[in-house]
């Protein structure tokens, strides 16, 4: 088992009323799964993904990641955990505009204190694998959306995470580019990377091994 969520609640207090974003979420992910989280806007998909990614905290509930109780960990240990095991892919790519393709991909390694020579080798491998060697010195705004997302995925993969969290990874791409990205995910999944994606698209969800439907903060079976 890679992770499990037990009795997760997330709410906001608006004018004395409690508005629930997530209500009693119980959820388990095995290593090697490819899960799509689906649901209409405002159903809590992104919040759930952020909680899994340890970027957000629920108001109640427990979360175990590789048998560690995440919310009992100190801030630093938690950061250590997701730095090592989780990679993020965003709808808006969120590349750093001031860094080149090469540098964007390299950044997570810098934060993990990987040595320069090793970094070079790893980034070179990744550029090779995604066929973007020729673009390594370009800046994000010189790339198309699909290419930017490729860089985003390369960056998410560089630290060899066990889990990729993708928040509508194809939302800003045309269908051809989107399909390429999903093919890539599928291939990564067969190589053993666990993937959780949030998506609106049935077509994209079809790539996954497992679909979780959210409605008003509750998982529909």
């Amino acid at each position: 088992m890679l992770l499990n969520l037990k009795n997760i609640y997330k709410w906001y207090n608006v004018g004395g009323n409690r508005t629930f974003i997530l209500k009693d979420i119980n959820f388990e992910v095995q290593e090697g799964e490819f899960i799509s989280i689906m649901g209409p806007s405002g159903s809590g998909k992104s919040t759930l993904l952020n909680i899994i990614g340890m970027l957000d905290e629920p108001n109640e509930g427990t979360y175990n990641f590789l048998h560690e109780n995440v919310f009992k960990l100190k801030e630093k240990q938690r950061a250590q955990l997701y730095k090592q095991y989780i990679g993020f892919v965003f709808q808006q790519y969120h590349l750093i505009d001031e860094l080149t393709v090469y540098e964007n991909i390299e950044t997570p390694l810098i934060y993990q204190d990987v040595k320069t020579s090793e970094r070079k080798a790893l980034v070179a491998d990744m550029l090779d694998r995604f066929n973007i060697v020729g673009k390594k010195d370009l800046f994000p705004n010189q790339l198309s959306g699909g290419q930017q997302q490729l860089v985003g995925i390369a960056r998410a993969l560089i630290a060899k995470p066990k889990l990729i969290l993708a928040d509508e990874p194809t939302g800003n791409l045309n269908s051809k580019q989107g399909e390429e990205i999903m093919q890539l995910f599928k291939q990564l999944n067969t190589e053993g990377v666990t993937i959780i994606q949030v998506t609106h698209s049935e077509k994209n969800a079809a790539y996954s091994s497992h679909i979780v439907n959210l409605l008003d903060g509750v998982i529909k079976r």
Partner: peptide, 16 residues
């Protein structure tokens, strides 16, 4: 702010 957010997600500590 965007850059700060991404860096944090990529594992940057506040100190860094």
């Amino acid at each position: 702010s965007g850059e700060v957010g991404i860096r944090k997600v990529l594992g940057a500590q506040r100190q860094g």
